[in-house]
Amino acid sequence: IAESVNEKIFSFLNIGTIGLVACNRVSELVMGYRSVDIERTIKVIEANRSLIRGIKVRASQVITGDLGIECVRLAKKIGKLSKLPLIIHVGEPPPLLDEILPLLEKGDVITHAFNGKIGGNIMEDQYTFALAKEAHKRGVFMDLGHGSASFSFEVAKYGLDHGLVPDIISTDLHCYNFDGPVYDLPTTMSKLLNLGMSLEHVIKCVTSSPRIVLSEPYKQDLLVPGQEADFTAFKVESVNLKAFDSMGTELVMRKFIQPKLAVLGTKFQQCQSIGREKLAY
């Protein structure tokens, strides 16, 4: 796919040797330690350096089984050997966030950082929240990763009110959530805008910050003559829409980031948000 499209596509390599083949029905770590082959993983990374930009591990009990925190330690070892950041999916414990967060370093990423799962979110325990803020301060990125079950308005608002804001806004879009509650990236961005994030920071979370994680060059002056075009034109519309998080909690949105035109090089495409259309009914 990456070689056949005009857009730049990168990947995070899952530490499970079988990869993400059947989501949660068959765990990529189903065989415990035998599911991870460090030597083969490093060889795959070296053979695909231009494509692989991080090491992924889904650190929630339904995936890790009895491995617990050891799956994160294994991933961290692979990250150090390959000089790549970790992208840690968090959710149902174990392992606990209290165990995961101290292992992470500058450039690593926590995805689903604002989930509302019992025992696995940053809001319910002041000690855990303090660890999350410390990790963020030392350069760990907080990624939204909305998904079907991994974003809570309550947790996100708590984070915003207490100085822990997303660095990256991503959708975790797949076939089970593109018809709601996620829909698309503009809808997800608009949810954060209506929760209180500034428009400038929302845009940063989908442009410059992801490029830093992916080790992609970022230029401040993107719209200058002679440089290849790569941007989306949008309009912030006044709306009155009801949106929902992964917990089923309602949010009344008064503003919506509506894309109008996507431009890449000499090619362009008119566009609009599916979510904006769906939420209107």
Rank of each mutant, 00 (worst) to 15 (best):
C23S: 15
L144Y: 05
M197R: 07
L199K: 15
N115L: 08
D184C: 12
C71D: 06
E99A: 08
V202W: 03
D172F: 12
D108I: 07
L223K: 00
L144W: 04
H174N: 02
L103D: 01
N121F: 11
E105N: 11
L173N: 06
G107F: 14
N240V: 13
K260W: 05
K80T: 15
R276V: 03
Q126K: 15
A243E: 01
I274L: 14
L251S: 03
G91H: 04
H162L: 12
T188H: 05
S4N: 10
I38D: 11
V57A: 06
R254Q: 15
H146P: 12
L29F: 11
L195P: 00
T41Q: 07
V213W: 09
L164M: 03
D221W: 02
E134H: 08
M123N: 05
A22G: 09
L84I: 08
Q272Y: 13
I203W: 14
I274D: 13
M253G: 07
S35H: 05
V26F: 10
K80P: 08
V224I: 01
L96I: 02
A75K: 02
F256M: 01
F129S: 01
N194S: 00
K56T: 12
M197N: 05
I78S: 07
V224A: 01
F178K: 00
G226P: 09
L279V: 02
L86Y: 04
Y33G: 10
G65L: 04
D184E: 07
Q270F: 14
I42Q: 00
P225F: 10
M189Y: 00
F12Q: 05
G180S: 07
E70Y: 06
I15Y: 15
